[in-house]
């Protein structure tokens, strides 16, 4: 039997900050973020990859951080909910979730915001159907999704009428 590595060195950029740690080989990215880095905004709601509470953006792609090992992210750029607000200003989506009462218990909210952020980067003017498709991997038990859809829609329109430059490919399936 060959020698098995039970830990790995990992260097990642999280919300613009470079961090290096030795991680257990079995450690999930979500536990790395929460337990090792103390970024507890990313949540865990299931153990089967269904609920989306742990959604983060890794190298520009939306990822459920309970479905990937921390060791797999070496060299990656990671965005979490803690990085959405810039210089003390909420992102338009965060502001819109607040204004439209798109959160109640707030447990799904970080993952929901990451999915919505990803959606609007790739499809800045989604239809309601596309919004719902974009967050179908994120479970919310409090809102019936009504105000979440409303909040995302409001931002997308604002972006469209406000003429924000959005460069990523539109219409990509989430």
């Amino acid at each position: 039997m060959g020698e098995r590595a039970t830990s790995h060195a990992v260097t990642v950029e999280v919300n613009g900050e470079k961090v290096s740690r030795i991680v257990a080989a079995r450690q999930l990215l979500v536990h790395f973020l929460r337990d090792t880095l103390g970024l507890t905004g990313t949540h865990i709601g299931c153990d089967t990859g269904n609920c989306g509470a742990c959604s983060v953006i890794v190298n520009g792609k939306l990822v459920k951080s309970c479905m990937i090992l921390a060791a797999q992210t070496d060299g990656a750029t990671i965005e979490t909910v803690e990085g959405l607000a810039q210089d003390g200003t909420l992102s338009p989506l965060q502001e819109s979730f607040h204004e439209h009462h798109a959160l109640q218990c707030g447990y799904c909210t970080p993952g929901m915001l990451m999915s919505a952020t990803y959606l609007l980067r790739h499809n800045p003017e989604p239809t309601d159907e596309e919004i719902r498709r974009g967050i179908r991997g994120n479970i919310c038990r409090c809102t019936g999704y009504v105000n979440i859809v409303k909040a995302i829609r409001a931002v997308s329109r604002r972006q469209a009428t406000g003429g924000h430059a959005v460069t990523a490919a539109a219409g990509e399936e989430v």
């Binding site: 905004g41 009462h101 707030g106």
Partner: peptide, 15 residues
């Protein structure tokens, strides 16, 4: 809109 939201939308809740 709620007072609670500020912390919850920024991942600053205490669960």
């Amino acid at each position: 809109p709620r007072k609670e939201d500020g912390r919850l939308v920024q991942g600053q809740g205490a669960f």
